[in-house]
Design a protein around this nucleic acid. Structure first.
Lengths: 183, 183
DNA sequence: AAGCAATTTCAGTTTTTACAGAATGGACCG
DNA sequence: CGGTCCATTCTGTAAAAACTGAAATTGCTT
């Protein structure tokens, strides 16, 4: 008896798949992830094929991608030769891993490029001034965000959760005198 | 003389366009945005067409989308009947608007759906226990993130910038005793 | 080391998305 | 009002992405 027989599980998986298409993967990958997230036991690729009606090859690729993000892992199941897969169920962990990986793949190279452009423009007298300024600001801005992310990411999970629950109240701790920095 | 004649401007726009494809819009929209961001004066749609070599219709659609995110606005230019457009140059503002809009369009409906599913599952005795639990957790998790976002978003910009620069040091303010909450 | 089961890779197809050009709509001017 | 200038919407096409099924590879098992 399959999870997908339950209409709410089905709704979850369909929605998750749709979300995927807006957030950087394709439907299949997100659906595979959703299915594994809901499953209470490791699933072999074939089960995923059956439940989601995808081609075997597609599932293989999807699993590889999910493993690349570190949110799915292969496990061995007693008495079965086939690989089985389980999803990370700690949602903090999941979020952290996805964001770390996307930063690595997309943000870091962007920062590198912006740094290069900003550097060159700073020395280029013929460059339009607003070009120099705007590229420079973009570089600085994204670098600042990235640095913040790296630091916060390093905090212990319980601290993060506490901070999160604090919400806007963290503002109490910063001096009410705004600095003059402008981004 | 066009911005795109400058190789660094060109590189910026091309890269930004590429980023767009990974972060929820298409290349054209992101390129239009990049061009406006770099421009020191309001541009009419025709100029965008000429510089980026896009169809007029495409530029029209792209501008509409960017205005939908609130990061581009129409301005009137003295003695010219045509609409002109400028991009938000405050990057904080830009980030805030994009994230607020995406939350509104994608996250909020997801929370609503998850709430519905979680509610129904809680009452459904026949539901597999891990299904109930996992959907419930996902709902709780995303709701918490969203609430955090809404609160932080409301803080004055200078406070946000200060907090950001503090980075991991904010952790100093939270008691080192971890709570037992698990997400 | 041959045979089998499972997985991955690859080439071709389908589906989806982005785009151009044509057609339509609307404001302003004479 | 009729014409011109812009902007937008619509429709078919081109480009890109996702997916399939077949072939190739890996690696276990005897």
């Amino acid at each position: 008896m399959s999870l997908l027989d339950h209409p709410d599980a089905r709704a979850f998986i369909l929605h998750w798949g749709e979300m995927g298409t807006h957030w950087g993967t394709n439907r299949s990958v997100a659906q595979i992830h959703a299915l594994l997230y809901l499953s209470d036991r490791p699933l072999p690729a074939d089960d995923i094929v059956d439940q989601l009606r995808l081609a075997r090859s597609n599932v293989s690729t999807g699993l590889k991608e999910l493993q690349g993000y570190g949110i799915v892992r292969r496990v061995h199941v007693e008495g079965d030769r086939r690989d089985h897969f389980i999803a990370e169920t700690d949602l903090w962990e999941m979020l952290m891993r996805i964001s770390a990986e996307r930063k690595r793949r997309e943000i870091d190279p962007t920062i590198a490029l912006l740094g290069e452009l900003a550097g060159r423009l700073a020395r280029d007298d013929s460059a339009p001034p607003q070009l120099r300024e705007r590229v420079g600001r973009m570089h600085e801005f994204i670098s600042t965000l990235a640095a913040w992310y790296d630091q916060v990411r390093g905090l212990p999970k319980p601290t993060l959760i506490t901070l999160m629950k604090l919400g806007g109240k963290v503002a109490r701790f910063v001096s009410p005198r705004p600095d003059k920095h402008r981004n």
